[in-house]
Simulated assay, not measured.
Amino acid sequence: MSQLKASISRYFEDSFEWFDRSYIADWLIVGILWFLTTAVKASPVYERGFDINDPTISYPQREDQVSAFFNNMTALFVPSIVVSVIGFMQRSLMVIHHGAIGICATRGLTELTTEMLKHSVGRLRPDFLSRCAWDKVLGQCTGHLSLIINGRKSFPSGHSSTAFSGMVFLSLTIAGQTAAWCFSIPKTPRKVRSSRMLTFFLALLPLFWATHVAVTRLQDHRHHKEDVIVGSFIGIVCAVLCYLIFWPNPFSLASFHYEVFGKPRWIYKETGYVSTRATDFDLEGVAH
């Protein structure tokens, strides 16, 4: 066991010296967010009345272009895998930890906010009447109960909030490692990775997927446009907040180590762009 620990310590530069007891409280809070989300999902949905002649809820029911399972897995695991790869390349368990807790916090906060609104508002989906299968004789819905209940969860769009929460966090992570959104930072000449358009495009790439997911919710008649807009906004806000809790601002020059003609200017670590929780490094030790 001691040999394994020594081997890990040799590979990872910071080993476990970075770990702070406050992270236990952080993980506890993240766990509470996920638990509360599960509890809200089990609670009843507000049942608002409807008009069977309402054209806004009379669209046909279609199959999802992007399934909920695939969307959730993509939003959670793709950013986690990318951060893990970055951490191994930098030989930093701290980067892996901060990435993991950051994305888990993002997903937990996003899901809790989305589900609370869904169950409180009870807005009907555009395809609600197809789910309802209204019977004029009985004067009630005769469709499958689970479909009817789900048909009352239009606002906000869970697919949109999920996709944007995961992909915005991933975009911020990429920007935090490449300085893609810090336009004032000097770039080392004669290196491909110094291409501003390349890093900028890489940082934006995840947002194209999130936008695609949001658009499919309109095409599939699962949501009204307001549902998608608000859901996307929730995902973006939660991702930005949870990212900035553990990582410095990717738009700020002070967040990066860079070189100009081989001469270091701002130094937080010896090599590469480094983004890490602001309280984990000494700003007074920055060299100019």
Rank of each mutant, 00 (worst) to 15 (best):
22 S>H: 14
155 F>P: 05
202 L>C: 13
246 F>N: 08
82 V>K: 01
248 P>C: 03
220 D>L: 12
200 F>S: 09
158 G>V: 06
63 E>C: 04
184 S>G: 11
15 S>E: 04
233 F>K: 02
216 T>N: 06
11 Y>V: 10
222 R>P: 01
85 V>S: 03
113 T>W: 05
124 L>S: 02
9 S>Q: 13
88 F>R: 04
85 V>P: 01
24 I>S: 00
52 I>G: 01
262 G>A: 03
210 A>C: 05
19 F>Q: 04
119 H>V: 09
84 S>D: 02
26 D>Y: 06
185 I>P: 00
206 P>E: 00
193 R>P: 00
257 H>G: 11
42 A>G: 13
238 C>L: 08
65 Q>C: 05
173 T>D: 00
276 T>H: 00
174 I>S: 07
33 L>A: 05
145 L>S: 13
13 E>D: 09
162 T>D: 11
35 F>P: 00
123 R>C: 07
272 G>Q: 03
83 V>H: 07
132 C>D: 02
131 R>T: 02
57 I>W: 02
274 V>C: 01
48 R>Q: 12
146 S>E: 12
204 L>K: 02
109 L>E: 07
147 L>Y: 09
194 S>R: 08
10 R>Q: 14
162 T>P: 00
231 G>D: 05
120 S>K: 14
120 S>M: 09
221 H>D: 05
9 S>T: 15
279 T>P: 04
63 E>S: 12
194 S>K: 10
6 A>K: 13
78 V>P: 07
66 V>W: 04
198 L>C: 07
137 V>M: 10
115 E>P: 00
44 P>M: 08
270 E>R: 15
193 R>Y: 11
169 F>V: 06
223 H>W: 12
26 D>H: 11
32 I>K: 09
133 A>K: 15
169 F>Y: 14
135 D>W: 13
129 L>I: 07
39 A>R: 12
56 T>H: 14
181 W>C: 02
170 L>Y: 10
23 Y>N: 14
149 I>P: 06
170 L>I: 08
260 V>W: 04
70 F>Q: 11
159 H>C: 08
284 E>I: 04
270 E>M: 07
248 P>T: 03
63 E>M: 06
44 P>T: 10
277 R>I: 01
155 F>G: 02
287 A>K: 14
172 L>G: 04
184 S>T: 15
66 V>M: 07
164 F>V: 08
29 I>Y: 08
191 K>M: 04
138 L>N: 15
119 H>F: 09
265 R>E: 01
137 V>D: 12
38 T>E: 15
131 R>K: 10
228 V>K: 08
138 L>Y: 09
195 S>P: 09
269 K>C: 12
172 L>W: 03
232 S>I: 12
47 E>C: 01
267 I>W: 00
79 P>E: 11
257 H>K: 11
100 A>W: 13
101 I>N: 03
14 D>P: 14
197 M>L: 15
7 S>I: 10
185 I>N: 02
